[in-house]
Structures are given as structure tokens and as C-alpha cells.
Design a protein around this nucleic acid. Sequence first.
DNA 1: TCCGTTCGTGTTATACTATTACATATCATT
DNA 2: AATGATATGTAATAGTATAACACGAACGGA
Lengths: 160, 160
Amino acid sequence: MPDPHASAFERHDHAGCRHDVLAAVEREARERGLRLTPVRRRTLEILLEEHRAMGAYDVLERLAKDGFGAQPPVAYRALDFLVDHGFAHRIRRLNAFAACMHPDHSHAPVFLICTGCNAVAEAPGEQVREALDATARSLGFAVERSNIEAVGLCPTCAPE
Amino acid sequence: MPDPHASAFERHDHAGCRHDVLAAVEREARERGLRLTPVRRRTLEILLEEHRAMGAYDVLERLAKDGFGAQPPVAYRALDFLVDHGFAHRIRRLNAFAACMHPDHSHAPVFLICTGCNAVAEAPGEQVREALDATARSLGFAVERSNIEAVGLCPTCAPE
DNA sequence: TCCGTTCGTGTTATACTATTACATATCATT
DNA sequence: AATGATATGTAATAGTATAACACGAACGGA
Ligand SMILES: [Zn+2]
Ligand SMILES: [Zn+2]
Ligand SMILES: [Zn+2]
Ligand SMILES: [Zn+2]
């Protein structure tokens, strides 16, 4: 059983991680009455296979190869579905999408983007969001959603 | 003299705020040996006049009216210059740019975007970035740059 | 089961955002 | 004045995202 807390920066059993996440999403979708249709499921699989942030057009290309529609809305709609329900995340800095690694519980992570290897890891966002909320509150601003993304070097790519 | 700490959400002497920021940028540019050329200066003025986040093409349209080049690189280059030197910020969530309100000292603010009135305020980012750094460090990740943006309601637009 | 509604998919077309490549002009130095 | 570095302008193109509409499958009530 793979470590459910392994970050993208650590070596991990990737096949297992893929399988587990997909299973969790299927369970969640069933419980929440969401329709994980073939395109949507395949879109998630593609994100999981790559295990990195992908642009909508990269995803679209793969979907088209698999016999789904070849026009942008096909990919965008599936990706929007996944993002809306917490099964994927959108990384604005990269104009890209990545499968959520913890789809079983609602969360709002921060993203760490390595400029060395292009890996994108989800890190726990609670502390950061607490600080952000406090800062916003002091200006009378009520935060609804936020995106927090950092660019830098992961442990593997960092100089010794 | 306008309050230099007034946020975009508070009533403030906007003409004064514009003037002060522009003066500060001129001083900074002189001291740092940067060339605040006519396009660059006009681009900053446009951002300051609107006092909101603007898309590159909105800026370009205004520049063209003022007799500058009408092709995208004209706007993007001027905006990149301003961003690179801390005289403007890029808000990724909006694919937009906003003049920096505190160009005299290097800083990395968080952005608060009101969905009611489209105002964008810079809030102090130290606390939040500290939390982000700590979170990243615990994964062995070294943050170089980050963008932290929140969407929500400003005090004026919030329900009573 | 039939009907009407909602939801999902596919397609065409278009809008919006950003960069590459190259020619010309300006500036700073020598 | 000659040089090299910087800045501007233009044309062309690449990359990202949405609007609008037709069709059909899924769902729910009569
Ligand atoms: Zn996640
Ligand atoms: Zn790396
Ligand atoms: Zn600023
Ligand atoms: Zn507002």
C-alpha cells in the first residue's frame, strides 16, 4: 500500500498511487451522485498517468487519440468537471491541470512547482490559508477562493 | 498627502495616489539607472489611471490611441519591464496587470480580488509567505517566487 | 411506457492571451 | 563617427479558452 502522504517529490509507487487515486475518485463520485462518464474518467486517467501538470490541449490530444472528440470544449469540460468537484486542480501559473492526489477529502492545497524537473506537488495549505485569511480579514476582505503557487527547486533538483 | 498605506478598498485621494506613485517610480528608476521611456511611462500611467487590473490588450488599445505601436509586443514589453522592476504586478488569475502601489520598496504582496467591484488590492505578504516558506521547507522545497491571489468580497461589496 | 426536461457530448466558429522573428531606431561609449 | 547594447515597431504565428448550437442519452413524473 503506497504512502498516501507521499509528495510528488518523493520516490513512490506510481502505479499504486494512480490506482488508489482513481479508486478513491470512483467511490467519491458514486457517493456524491456524480457521473464519472467515460471522457471524464479517461481525462483523469491521463492526468494520473502523466503525474504532472498538463495543458488542456495536451489532454485533448490524448483524448482524441482514444476516440473522443477532438475539439477544445471536450477537454475543457471534462477538466472543469474534475476541478469543480475537487478531483483535479488548476495551476494558473502554468495554464495547466493536475490530478488531485487526495480527492477523498475537500482541501485547498498550495502548489510547489519545480523549475528543474517540472514536477508539481500539492502541499498542505491550511497554515498558509490561515495566514492569508488573517491578512485579508484585517482589510475587511472575505476570501472565497484562493490560489497559492510557488516556483522553486525540489529536493532532487536543488544544488547540493 | 494621501495615506501611503490606504488599500484599494478604502476611499482615497486617487489623483494624489496616482501622482505619488508615479513620482516614486520616476525616482526609483533614476536611482537604479533604469530607462523609464515614453511607452513604459505611459503604460504605467494607464494602469494608474484605471487603478484596477487591466489585460495587456486593454493597455495596448490605450497605447495605440496615444500614438504608440499597435501590436501586442508593444504592450507586453512595457508591462514586462514594469513587472520585472517591481513597478507593476501580474495577476495570473485574471491574466492581467496592475500598477504597484508601493514601488519604493521591494515586496511580494498578496492580491485580494473583489468579485463585486473588480477592485484588486495589494495586501502585505510577509506573514503568508512565511507560512508558505515553512510549508515548502518541510518538503525540502526551496521557494524562489510565488503568486498568492484570493478572490472574494471587499468591505464595500460585502453583504451587511 | 411515454413524454418532457436535464444533462452530457460533439462540432463549428470565434475570442482572448502571448511569443517569435526580424527590421529599424535610439542610446551610451569609445 | 564607429561600435555595441538597448529599445521600438511590425508581421506573423502560437497557445489558451469560450460561445453557440445540434444531437442524443439519462432521469423523473404522468
Ligand atoms: Zn488535491
Ligand atoms: Zn525537481
Ligand atoms: Zn506592489
Ligand atoms: Zn468590491
